[in-house]
């Protein structure tokens, strides 16, 4: 049995955490009209050190959101447009033969776009599974292995992938293992009419909205460390575990909707995600402990892509959101 080493105490206070997060949201909100939930969930993912999968039709400011976020936290940003002919080397980089001033030739690793604090994997489902898998190590381990060399990615590292739910022809749906790496899956909804008017006013006028740096990468890392120290009561933790169990069709407390429509439930990584998201939401709410409400708020974006539906659900048009909703109603506090 190994004893975990004590984590260094974060320098940032909970109040500062909240203020800084609110500032980030506010700055992003200066550019992104509406979409408060989207912004909140993306910020939560960032502060959790995770990766987000945004699903929505084109033109909903997904790229703008990531770019703005990178500007606001003063981090490097790169965008990868996934296409069927995109190769892994196009993402992680490649080894080149280079010649120095003395004329000596040597192999040199040329970093790919993955080496950035914030990576936008646009339309990720258009690349082949081989290329998609190139992101796995980076997303989970924050490292890139090339020719026996492991390259550490800078912190914070944040992959924000998008996919279009409409144009499914010629796409490669993400495998479950890949999906499980995403902390949140966020459904980007279409803006309301009022928001559309606001969008038009902001983007078609002479003045373009400007953002300012309200945080830094180091600050984000400190915030990530603080978020992990938020206490959670054992019965709240047990509730999270029961939520995860309830997504599995063979569990004791499994609700009927799960038994009927779910093929596989959420993984333990899903539980980690829901708890971590709950901690951040508690801090954003000005509290110092995780509540049931935090877990419930985090349940949908953390579980919807981790619940694998069966054929019956697909035949009846049952979405994973409905299943997660049924699980939340069935599992009592």
């Amino acid at each position: 049995m190994t004893t975990p080493a004590p984590a260094p105490q974060p320098q940032i206070s909970p109040d500062e955490f909240r203020q800084r997060a609110q500032l980030i949201e506010a700055e992003v909100g200066n550019v992104i009209v509406g979409q408060r939930d989207l912004v909140r969930q993306v910020v939560v993912t960032l502060l959790a050190g995770g990766n987000a999968l945004l699903e929505g039709v084109p033109g909903l400011a997904k790229t703008t959101l990531v770019r703005t976020l990178a500007d606001v936290i003063d981090c490097s940003f790169s965008r990868i447009q996934f296409t069927p002919d995109l190769m892994p080397a196009d993402i992680i980089g490649t080894t080149l033969i280079s010649e120095d001033a003395q004329g000596r030739k040597a192999f040199r690793f040329e970093r790919g776009p993955i080496f950035a604090n914030m990576v936008l994997a646009d339309e990720i489902n258009r690349a082949t599974p081989k290329t998609q898998s190139a992101l796995l190590e980076a997303m989970q381990e924050h490292t890139v292995s090339v020719a026996k060399t492991i390259h550490q990615l800078d912190r914070p590292f944040f992959v924000l992938a998008t996919q279009n739910p409409l144009e499914m022809e010629g796409t490669y749906p993400l495998p479950e293992a890949q999906l499980d790496r995403f902390f949140f899956k966020v459904n980007v909804t279409f803006p309301t009419a009022a928001e559309l008017v606001e969008i038009a006013q902001r983007t078609t006028g002479a003045r373009r909205p400007q953002t300012r740096h309200v945080a830094s990468g180091a600050m984000i890392v400190e915030m990530q460390e603080l978020a992990r120290t938020v206490p959670i009561a054992s019965h709240v933790l047990a509730y999270a575990a029961r939520l995860i169990t309830a997504t599995h069709p063979g569990g004791k407390e499994t609700p009927s909707i799960t038994r009927q429509y779910v093929r596989y439930g959420a993984s333990p990584r899903g539980m980690q995600a829901i708890i971590l998201a709950g901690k951040i939401m508690a801090l954003l709410d000005g509290r110092f402990n995780v509540a049931f409400a935090d877990l419930k708020a985090a349940a949908m974006p953390t579980l919807r892509h981790r619940v694998v539906l069966n054929f019956e659900a697909q035949a009846e048009g049952i979405s994973s959101d409905e299943v997660v909703k049924g699980v939340l109603e069935a599992v009592k506090e």
């Binding site: 009561a233 019965h235 509290r287 402990n289 995780v290 509540a291």
Partner: peptide, 10 residues
């Protein structure tokens, strides 16, 4: 929001 129970446990 589970303040009391968490405090008691802590």
């Amino acid at each position: 929001r589970e303040r009391l129970s968490t405090a008691l446990e802590l």
